[in-house]
Design a protein around this nucleic acid. Structure first.
Lengths: 210, 210, 210, 210
DNA sequence: GATGAATGAGAATTCATTCAT
DNA sequence: TATGAATGAATTCTCATTCAT
């Protein structure tokens, strides 16, 4: 095959992107290095030039995904013009607000990922996003819309439940079942954060429309 | 190797038990059939005499674990002499009440299991235990100690959060961190179920002592 | 399972019969001893009580099949009331003459058998049946209907061609192709044995009807 | 083991050649991949780098053998300077005419091959060589040396008989028995093709000498 | 930087056969 | 005679990783 030289950064990014896509589609364990390099059209050696092992690239993918999520969340959390409630809506809502080519946080979190990737990213997402959300909760307490003692741990618990329960098909729920669960989730979140019933309606847009 | 004949059920149970232990210790994928049979001291053929494939025994293990959990929970839930709150305490509390040789539900749920086993049992546990707990909540509503609209879905959400967040090391929390999380969980549960603050103190016995 | 005691002869015959049927259906190599004993409903040990190995029973099956074929052919060949041509028709024709429950020679020879069984029985059939057919040819020479120098070898060659070419699907011929081949076979046989054209019409009954 | 890199075609050919030799010697089923790679001195992975399964290489061997046979036969059949009878002699005769390093067709056909390889190549040989021989027969009809109605089917039948009957030891004939059979085959072929007795004497060179 | 042939340690699974009961 | 649990060598195939070019 023709040897195609690329800038190292570009080649590395290409491999991460492709591997990530394939891992999400077929699962980490079922994805051989062979599959990845065939998809890209490079040689085996090239893969091992950039990554010293297969677990190595898994880490790179999780890191990349998370930094994207965190960056987006941070930019919202740090926006001084938004109220706590608006920030919550922006981060947890289901409607597109801005750009088209970038996924929204809520969407990113629900990609039909697989086990290994899933668990790793789910956990890291909870751990890294919780402080950001907790900070918003603190802001909300100041604004008088939330009342809760331990924002970080509370957010962590709620986030974990939400993430794992309604996440990419782990539980095998139907669409209707998922809707009910999201409604209940909203109620629990409102109670746990001590906010007005209905204040998290943005989580269930259809019901809000009804 | 010497041929040691055993009663089929005994041999089968022996294999399930050993495989379960090794899966929990090293993970399903990293545990070869070779490891299992070497541990027991039987031939490979013996393994395949009882289980037709490796996934097959994984299923057997999950089934066994779950039926134990469900059986125990049911016996508590069906006891007419106990109040809803007593049942909750019995199922979610951390103190041993009865027999010594059998694990309590709460303990079973927190075994340091691995991915495959983990996810499978976690999910099934939530799905199968939720109705039983929901039924107790209904009883509690009748007794005036709970107030909640959708017991099943509420329980499912709370259970999922609890299960995944404080479960065998997935999140890598320290003991202190786990304690804080359990405290918060208690508060959220009390709020979500509409019960008196402090009524779920049994979840955090040490704090109760303090 | 209940232990069912049978007369040794009966049990042995039962195993041979069942194994033969399965070998013909799935092939010798693909048929495990397990399959055979499960089909009969006896234990592994029982199989090995009657046959010391798997190849052993293959031989028993071939022997049995062949002795049936040879016996039937002999009874025809030895019938003093039939002419050579009548005997040929009886042995190679495609129409049923007598009993219903026993297969005719021609039919037996074309069972859709598998490789191992196939080759073994084909070869043995050719070797054991050839002398009998050769003897009929000798009779025919005496009766003035055949003219050929070396009946045995001639028969052997013709038989081999017929057996392997039109046999159970080895060549993958369609029904139409098989018909054409049978027509040509008839011509060659007539020429090789020096008999009148059309004298072997019984081999192609449909054409005879046309 | 030392890593010896070779040109892919060379390595592939080496594996096909070695596997072919071993299959012919011990039989396809009794030849493990292990045996093959040990004989060549490469790693297991190397085998599976070139062939995706064991049946895969069987096919490669049969293909290679057949294309050699067909190529040789075609070059003879297409030679405009030869008469039909000369072509027959060239293809079916037992004496070497030309090159030394390549096996003659007749020899190739009689290699002591095993079941699977045997049956597959025998059948394919008959199917692929028949049209070429039939074409020669047509030429012979034009030249007035043959007289036969259905050349293709006739050739197929004769070829099948010859191939299987005198082929590498299937029937276990002695040299003397084989000689007699070849003599008879000659007669039958002459009769079936309607050619002059003795015109196929090249098939039995020793007798011709006698 | 890039290639791709080569490696080889294992993995799961099969199955004819044995033998204690 | 009969049972069926137990054996274990053998087999095919996978795949992360290495390394000569």
């Amino acid at each position: 095959m023709a040897r195609i030289v690329k800038a190292p950064e570009e080649r590395r990014a290409e491999i991460v992107e492709t591997a990530g896509r394939l891992f999400r589609k077929h699962g980490y364990a079922k994805c051989s290095v062979e599959m990845i390099i065939r998809e890209i059209g490079v040689a085996k050696g090239t893969f091992y030039y950039y990554f010293k092992s297969k677990p190595d690239i898994l880490e790179a993918i999780v890191d990349k995904t998370l930094s994207q999520i965190v960056e987006m969340a941070s930019s919202v959390a740090d926006d001084p013009s938004l109220s706590a409630m608006q920030k919550m809506a922006a981060l947890l809502g289901n409607s597109h607000i801005g750009d088209d080519d970038s996924l929204e946080v809520a969407e990113m979190l629900h990609l039909p990922e697989n086990r290994e990737l899933h668990e790793l990213t789910n956990i890291q997402t909870v751990l890294q996003l919780s402080p950001i959300l907790a900070q918003i909760v603190e802001q909300g307490i100041g604004e008088g819309v939330f009342e809760v003692e331990r924002p970080l741990e509370t957010i962590q618990f709620l986030f974990t439940g939400a993430q794992f329960l309604t996440d990419g098909g782990m539980f095998g729920f139907s669409e209707a079942e998922l809707r009910t669960r999201r409604l209940v989730m909203q109620t629990i979140i409102e109670k746990a954060l001590g906010s007005t019933p209905g204040s998290f309606d943005f989580m269930n847009p259809i019901r809000a429309v009804e």
